Simulated scan of single mutants.
Amino acid sequence: MGILDTIRAVLGTSAETDATREADPEDLFGMSTAYITMEAELGYPNAGAAALCFSSVDSTDFEDTLREVRDILEAGEAETGTNASVRMDEQGYHWVVLEDSDPEDLVTSIHFAADTFIERGYGSRLLAALFAFEKSSRYVYWIYSFRRGSYYPFAPKGGRERDQSAEFKLQSVLDGELAVEDDTSYWYPLWPDAAGRHPWE
């Protein structure tokens, strides 16, 4: 199974089939309090970045939807200070990338983008929302799987290894505050290209 097939299986159709609950964009607002817990109890402050991963559709209507998301996020930059951009990674997946030191603005902007895709009939194209935290110059993430309707932690290390002890610690502290995925086989790693970089870079 290639990397694209693996992504489709874990964050895509089979994940949706196996899901125990439906995705709800309101779940994203749970991150508003999780940011506080992450810093106060675990020492992981907000890294000032979040992103929405989705697969595109070759249609004019989808392009119009993406343009609407981008234009409104850019228009709100003056008010919130949230920098927004749209990127495509080497695997062909698209990202709405947000940068802001205020975690509340990141959560609100991610929710807006996801909700717009859903309202325009493209909720099935949403794969994941990522929220970044940093400690000792290393990033960890909470990833929301739209197909599973749940969060899971991801703590990458160098050499495409993950810090499982850190991930299970995050799970133990945040489970209940977030809808954490119980089945660890769905804790799919979204690897960055290099240490110290984000998966969408």
Rank of each mutant, 00 (worst) to 15 (best):
D5K: 11
T6W: 01
I7L: 14
A9L: 11
L11E: 07
S14C: 02
E16I: 10
E22Q: 11
A23Q: 06
D24Q: 05
L28E: 07
L28D: 07
A40D: 14
E41L: 14
A47Q: 04
A51E: 03
F54K: 05
F54C: 04
F62W: 15
R67C: 07
E68R: 01
I72P: 01
I72Q: 00
E74N: 09
E74H: 01
E79Y: 03
N83G: 02
S85G: 09
V86W: 00
M88C: 09
M88V: 14
D89S: 08
Q91V: 09
D100T: 12
E104C: 01
E104W: 01
D105M: 04
V107C: 07
F112Q: 07
D115E: 11
T116H: 02
E119I: 05
R120L: 05
Y122M: 08
Y122R: 12
R125E: 15
R125A: 13
A128M: 09
A129S: 15
L130K: 00
E134D: 12
S137D: 15
Y139L: 14
R147P: 03
R148P: 02
R148A: 12
A155T: 12
G158S: 13
Q164G: 03
A166K: 03
A166M: 14
E167N: 04
F168T: 12
V173T: 14
V173A: 12
L174F: 11
W187H: 10
W187E: 06
Y188C: 04
P192L: 12
D193M: 08
D193F: 05
A195G: 08
G196H: 09
